[in-house]
Design a protein around this nucleic acid. Structure first.
Lengths: 265, 265
DNA sequence: AACGATTTGTTCGTATGTATC
DNA sequence: TGATACATACGAACAAATCGT
């Protein structure tokens, strides 16, 4: 009696879902049937469903019904590795190594004025022109991440003209900048946050319009051999299909592992 | 007209919040006033408020009113660093370096049977007894993270008896295991996921009971000089107050930086 | 292509409970 | 204690999406 009725209904359905009585993708009873089963009004049943939607356990489809959400098999992105490796090539390799099909759009290249955050990372005055290279990435045809790299505009006049071409740089941007400008990527810093998706991101990733499913935002600042920032890459990953690994020091070959939960009260 | 009324109301209020017209912590008009201002019923106004609550922009306090949420100043946890460093000492150092006050409970020690995930990480059979050391951590009196470390039970009979004491290990667990068992922490792997908090976590961190604010879950597996796992640490961090940095290769001194958003459509 | 049946989405009204000041 | 404000619950009506006939 302590809990309101809609929570009790939600708890009951939750147990059925988490016990596997209701399988992912399976349709549950309609609002009308639930109303009868729990002897509650339609609005109360709907409140229970909303609760479960917030927990990302069910989804509703207008005109069809209520369904247990199908969890997407996550992709694990390694954040550590050879500091001198580029982004594009290693992405495809990492994904296909796991037997999945990577894909990405042709880069969309623009010249923009650096906003405060990008300017600070690149150690340039705010408003300085920078080259922005934007790419949408997919795994098994599903939208997976949005990547945007920013380079100082000066790189182009110094001889790295390919940065302005809307085309994949075959040898990778890191190798290309090394060959043309003698810039060696000596290291990078990743800065990981979680936030609600904006409207564009929600649309692209097919996330609910409200903020239920969050996104990772990773700011990667790459430095050359002199410690000068040479690139900032901002990548957005939905948290429902992305995870990260970092390896520091000597770590043996990774093992296959399963998800685990609730280790400690 | 495309959007339902409650969304339009939510959008209007959202703009006022994000433009700074409504400051964090400030009280909004009451449901009654909003009902009159937007000429909508109370339920429609409440739907708009619910939408903003999902986006974590406002919070409601029964008997008081509706308030713009105060964002908590985030703490940034470095995931990279000396692979041989322990957890407890470096945590306090990292936090106080930023001028904030760290705090943590005395460890709560238990002997548990390893569940599937922990057993796999420690490369032990499922159900093997392990030592669990659980600690609650605070920053500036605010609950900040929940940490649980798991060690093989065998460490105790081999001479590392302090692991069973409900007390902070002054020199740090890593140094202690080195001194007693000759185990050197050669490296570790962090595996980062995001999920909805469970009831206990929501309670401890004062998060809403539904899954609106997610938590990071970091599985850290530490390996000794032979490549054998010696510890698994599971730490849970609310995403609304925690961020991470990883540095790979040569990275210059970090700079103070501000948040940035929406770099690319 | 058109229609009807089913199902969820939005909006209103109303009453009562509970928390805070 | 009373007034105020949000929380829960019921009922009702119409809109919009989907599917099968």
């Amino acid at each position: 009696m302590a809990n309101p009725m809609y929570r009790q209904i939600a708890e009951d359905l939750r147990e059925q879902i988490e016990s596997g009585q209701l399988q992912p993708g399976q349709q549950l009873s309609t609002e009308l049937e639930l109303r009868e089963r729990y002897r509650a009004s339609r609005n109360t049943v709907r409140d229970a469903i909303k609760w479960l939607m917030n927990l990302d356990l069910v989804e509703t489809r207008p005109g069809q019904g209520i369904f247990v959400v199908k969890k997407i098999a996550p992709h694990v992105t390694p954040l550590s590795g050879d500091p001198g490796t580029g982004e594009g090539a290693i992405y495809r390799w990492q994904v296909s190594k796991n037997g999945r099909k990577p894909d990405s759009t042709v880069p969309q290249v623009e010249i923009q004025r650096a906003d405060k955050g990008i300017a600070a990372e690149l150690q340039l005055p705010e408003g300085t022109q920078v080259i922005s290279r934007h790419e949408k990435r997919y795994i098994d045809e599903t939208p997976w991440s949005l990547m945007t790299s920013f380079y100082p505009r000066g790189f182009v006049v110094q001889g790295a003209g390919k940065l302005l071409l809307a085309d994949n740089i075959a040898e990778g941007a890191v190798q290309y900048l090394n060959a043309t400008l003698g810039l060696r990527q000596a290291g990078y810093r990743d800065w990981i946050t979680v936030r609600a998706p904006n409207a564009v991101e929600a649309e692209f990733f097919s996330l609910p319009q409200d903020g239920r499913v969050a996104v990772f935002e990773n700011f990667r600042t790459a430095f050359d051999q002199t410690g000068t920032p040479m690139r900032v890459t901002v990548t957005v990953f939905p948290t429902d299909r992305n995870q990260f690994v970092v390896e520091i020091g000597d770590v043996p070959e990774p093992q296959v592992r399963a998800a685990a939960d609730d280790h400690k009260s």
